[in-house]
């Protein structure tokens, strides 16, 4: 499923709403999560999972083609930990659409 398909499904479930508004809802949700991570904040969505930012220290890497050593600067990577309910839902026998 891609973003536009998600919007279509939400539109089906909410026939009283403008399509444009649903697009804005989806954009706002992901933009708020991104903005929070860019501030270094955590985002915790109970039953779904938690997004956080982990710091990776600077290290000496290698160019896999030439084998030469390259400095890799310190950086931050976004991380997602699956929530308990979602983890259980993924492992329900029937493919589990509750």
């Amino acid at each position: 499923m891609i973003k536009s398909e998600l919007i279509l499904r939400l539109a089906e479930r909410n026939p009283h709403l403008y399509h444009r508004d649903i697009e804005r809802v989806v954009a706002t949700v992901f933009d708020e999560i991104s903005a929070a991570l860019a501030r270094g904040d955590r985002v915790e969505l109970r039953g779904f999972g938690a997004f956080s930012v982990k710091q990776r220290p600077a290290r000496v890497g290698r160019n896999p083609r030439t084998g030469s050593a390259v400095e890799v600067a310190e950086k931050c990577v976004p991380f997602f930990k699956t929530g308990k309910d979602l983890r259980e839902r993924l492992n329900q026998p029937a493919g589990g659409d509750a």
Binding site: L6, V26, V29, R89
Partner: peptide
């Protein structure tokens, strides 16, 4: 709506489908 967004994603994933948000 926020709950529905998350629920649609979860339901897709629970069927083994990948969800891509550009």
């Amino acid at each position: 709506l926020v709950d529905t967004v998350l629920d649609e994603i979860a339901s897709c994933l629970s069927q083994g489908e990948t969800v891509k948000i550009s």
